[in-house]
Design a protein around this nucleic acid. Structure first.
Length: 575
RNA sequence: GCACCCGUAGCUCAGCUGGAUAGAGCGCUGCCCUCCGAAGGCAGAGGCCAGGGGUUCGAAUCCCUUCGGGUGCGCCA
């Protein structure tokens, strides 16, 4: 139940009434009519721009439309005051009972309150993490993992059918490097001393993989040339890395529906099929690209290549899909992978990448647009860097991986709940500072704590109420004070916020909202210190107390639902 | 050189498909702790929304441009 949507429906019905009465011309487009919370709450509870939006097409003055609209709307029992303001806004003030009804819905629906049918019938694929299977996940992946996971949950909450997917880059040269690195560890496991060539993966995490390989094959590969063991070791190593990555994800409670292997596209005709599809559309050709302007690669020379005409779909230059030795570039399997997603019938694709893949966005969009004939939109969300701090000092090294801090390092220090919440306290395209100490600090500056505390505070009130024999299942409300009204209104905003966040693909909005509703709850609670009649717990008047507690429970339900979307456990107590 | 992202209070950042007098936290100033949990609370000061043009009844938001920061830029994925 989205109260804003309901009032908007009422506004449009009222406009129709005006049309019937001949006060407005028929056939107006109401699409731009909005009902929103006003910026300044002194203006009322909701405002509509209907009169201003319709003034021009209707050929009338905004204020005249607004006056007429106000007259009709005040006949609605929910609307107490409708007054024209500014250039033609219509400010609405709602009856207190309306807010109580919304809070009542929250209690009745529990964590399903705010669930939307917005995405009904929409199949969405969210691809995230997709880290190369060459080592443990690091901090950057962590942000992508949390973001993608929260976004998937948010879309599901908004009614979409969501598939969470991980693309395994196991087809390129980097898994060969992995295999060779594991082979070196395998040699070490046999007490041989080895040289680490430039570009190999020297992290400690491969030591046990080398030992496991020894345990499996003994000394069978020791004196053999690469041709003998490369395939087998690569497959052994990528399996091990994938197991590592899965266990990393599990630490964060991230669970994928599909792990899609790049390798599975090779030798199966899938890449060829995707490229053929593009060729059939006249988008594949052989040609020579212009050199990039400015800093020229040193070994630049004009070269004829097989190209995808991505410029036909908004890219800046056409992109090579085949190397000069006839093998595919990395782009070709990616095209095939997205072709596969399109063929699986998704209505919408979302790719979550690191910000360093920004240059990849246009060609990927071009590819999907071409493959789906503009049917399937693809939204590519870029996650910016995470800078780690400890005691305000930059924090860089990992004991495990050597050169980078791992997901495991982070989660082991602050836990999955804190990791997830903090990662969502910034917009995805804004850089994020993550301070280990602040993240676990128990103070108002720490949003994780602040929101958890609000939830726990209600739990605490409920426990004490039960001891005092106060009804904790009451569904009547006593919403009188300004602070109570604020909280009730904030609860009513939840369904609308879900839809906005889902539409914009921005789960951080949920985190910010939770901070606000927590703030309203704390404010109300603190007000009870001075104004005794505002306290939730009132031994002398259990009936009133029960109705106050009902509001606290409604807020708690919303906080719980919001945390659920973010993948954070609501705390029952903070000790 | 080109493309993408970003530029909002001293600091870190929100800001809804364009809406009214641009918000929050920290920091700062002043009050407040025998009180349902003060691991705080209340109030106040503080902004040319980087600069300039344009579209619009209306622009932090859309378009153009300048400046400043980040990322990327033909057989690496």
């Amino acid at each position: 139940m989205n109260l804003f949507a309901e009032i908007r429906t009422a506004v449009i019905a009222a406009l129709e009434t005006l049309v019937q009465a001949g006060d407005l011309p028929a056939g107006l487009d109401y699409a731009a009519v909005a009902v929103e919370p006003p910026r300044d709450k002194l203006h009322g509870d909701m405002a509509t721009n209907a009169a201003m939006v319709l003034a021009k097409p209707a050929g009338l003055k905004p204020r005249d439309i607004a006056e007429a609209l106000a007259a009709v709307l005040t006949q609605d029992g929910r609307i107490v005051v409708a007054e024209v303001a500014g250039p033609g806004f219509l400010n609405l003030r709602l009856a207190p009972s309306v807010w109580a009804d919304v809070a009542g819905a929250a209690l009745a629906l529990g964590r399903d309150f705010g669930r939307s049918a917005m995405g009904a019938g929409q199949k969405v694929n969210v691809e995230y993490v997709s880290a190369n299977p060459t080592g443990p996940l690091h901090v950057g992946h962590t942000r992508g993992a949390v973001f993608g996971d929260a976004l998937a949950a948010l879309l599901a909450f908004a009614g979409h059918e969501v598939t969470r997917e991980y693309y395994i880059n196991d087809g390129g040269a980097q898994v060969d490097t992995l295999a060779r690195s594991v082979f070196l560890r395998y040699q070490e496991a046999h007490d041989l001393s080895v040289d680490w060539p430039e570009g190999s993966y020297p992290g400690d995490y491969l030591i046990e993989v080398g030992e496991a390989l020894k345990a499996k094959v003994g000394n069978a590969y020791l004196d053999e040339p690469e041709e003998v063991w490369l395939d087998a070791v690569r497959s052994f190593a990528t399996d091990a890395m994938l197991a590592l990555i899965r266990s990393d994800l599990k630490l964060l409670n991230v669970e994928m529906d599909v792990f899609f292997s790049e390798k599975s596209l090779y030798g199966t005709g899938l890449i060829e099929a995707a490229i053929d599809d593009l060729r059939g559309k006249g988008l594949i050709y052989t040609g020579t690209l212009e050199p990039p302007k400015g800093k020229l690669p040193e070994d630049w020379e004009p070269r004829e290549q097989t190209l995808f005409k991505s410029t036909a779909y908004g890219d800046d230059v056409d992109r090579p899909i085949m190397k000069s030795d006839g093998s595919w570039t990395y782009f070709a399997p990616d095209i095939a992978y997205h072709y596969d997603k399109v063929q699986r019938g998704f209505d919408q694709l979302i790719d979550v990448f690191g910000a360093d893949h920004g240059g990849y966005v246009k060609r990927m969009k071009a590819a999907v647009a071409a493959l789906s004939e503009n049917r399937v939109p693809v939204d590519i969300k870029l996650c910016q860097l995470v800078k780690l701090f400890k005691n305000g000092e930059p924090f860089k090294m990992s004991k495990r991986a050597g050169t980078f801090v791992t997901l495991r390092d982070v989660v082991e220090q602050v836990g999955p709940d804190v990791t997830r919440f903090v990662m969502l306290t910034r917009k995805n395209d804004a850089p994020l500072d993550f301070d280990f100490d602040k993240a676990v600090e128990q103070s108002k500056e720490n949003p994780v704590f602040y929101v958890q505390y609000a939830h726990a505070r209600v739990a605490s009130v409920l426990r004490r109420a039960a001891e005092m024999g106060i009804d904790t299942a009451c569904t009547d409300f006593a919403i009188e004070d300004e602070a109570e009204l604020e909280l009730a209104k904030k609860i009513a905003e939840w369904p609308r916020l879900v839809e906005i966040a889902a539409r914009t693909h921005e789960p951080h909005r949920v985190a910010f909202y939770l901070n606000e509703i927590a703030s309203d709850l704390h404010t109300l609670y603190n007000k009870g210190n001075e104004a005794v009649q505002l306290r939730f717990l009132q031994e002398a008047d259990p009936a009133t107390s029960a109705r106050k507690i009902a509001l606290a429970r409604a807020a708690q339900v919303v906080i719980s639902a919001g945390l659920g979307i973010l993948g954070v456990t609501p705390a029952e107590e903070m000790r």
